[in-house]
Simulated scan of single mutants.
Amino acid sequence: MSSFSSSMQDLPEHVTIDILLRLPVKKIIHCKCVCKKWHNIVSDPYFADLHLLRSPKGLMIHHNSERDNRTGHLKPGILKWVEIEDEPDHHNLQHDPVMSLDLNLATIFQKTQILPVGSVNGLICLWQFGPKVDNTYICNPITREYMILPRQRYYRKGYAIIVYGFGVTLKTNEYKVVRTFQGNIPPDPTSGSRPSLLEAEVYTLGMGHWRSLGQVPFWCSGFDGPSLNGHAHWIVIDRDSPEKLCAFDFDTETFKLFPSPPCEYIEESYNHYISLGVLKGCLCQADTFDSQLTIWVMKEYGVKESWHKEVVIKESISPDLDWLMWEPVYVIESLKNGTILIVFRRDKLLVYCPHKNVVQDTRIFDRYLTGMIYCPSFLKLQHFRLERVHVF
Rank of each mutant, 00 (worst) to 15 (best):
S5H: 09
M8V: 08
M8C: 14
D10A: 10
V15L: 14
D18N: 14
I19D: 13
P24G: 08
C31M: 15
V34I: 10
V34T: 12
V34G: 08
K37T: 05
W38V: 15
W38I: 13
W38M: 11
W38T: 08
Y46M: 09
D49C: 02
R54I: 09
P56V: 05
P56R: 03
P56Y: 08
H62E: 11
N64D: 13
S65Y: 07
N69K: 11
T71H: 13
H73F: 15
K75D: 00
I78P: 01
E85V: 09
E85L: 08
H90Q: 14
M99H: 14
L101A: 06
L101C: 07
N104S: 12
N104D: 10
F109N: 12
T112W: 01
P116I: 03
V117F: 12
G118Q: 04
N121I: 01
C125D: 00
W127I: 00
Q128W: 01
G130M: 13
P131V: 05
P131Q: 04
D134P: 00
T136C: 14
T143C: 08
Y146F: 14
P150T: 07
R153K: 13
Y154H: 15
K157D: 07
K157T: 11
G158P: 01
Y159G: 02
V163K: 03
T172D: 14
K176H: 04
T180E: 04
T180K: 04
T180R: 07
F181R: 04
G183F: 07
I185K: 04
P186F: 03
S193F: 07
P195L: 02
E199G: 00
A200K: 10
V202I: 15
T204Y: 02
G208P: 04
G208Y: 05
S212E: 06
G214R: 15
V216P: 03
V216F: 05
V216R: 08
P217N: 12
F218L: 06
W219D: 14
C220K: 12
G225Q: 06
A232I: 00
H233E: 00
P242I: 03
C246Y: 03
T252V: 04
T252A: 09
T252F: 05
K256W: 00
P261T: 03
E264N: 06
Y265C: 05
I266S: 05
E267P: 00
N271I: 11
H272S: 09
I274R: 12
S275A: 14
G277L: 03
G277I: 04
G277S: 10
C282P: 02
C284M: 02
A286Y: 03
D287K: 01
D287C: 05
D287N: 10
T288Y: 04
T294G: 03
I295A: 08
E300P: 01
S306A: 09
W307Y: 06
K309R: 13
S316N: 09
L321K: 05
V329P: 02
Y330E: 15
E333H: 12
E333Q: 09
N337E: 13
T339M: 09
V343S: 07
R346Y: 15
D347A: 05
K348A: 14
L350W: 06
V359M: 13
Q360W: 02
T362H: 11
I364D: 02
D366L: 10
L369E: 07
L369W: 09
L369V: 03
T370V: 13
G371N: 03
G371D: 05
C375E: 12
C375N: 06
P376T: 11
P376Q: 06
P376I: 08
Q382P: 01
R385M: 06
H390N: 15
H390M: 10
H390Q: 12
V391H: 06
F392Q: 03
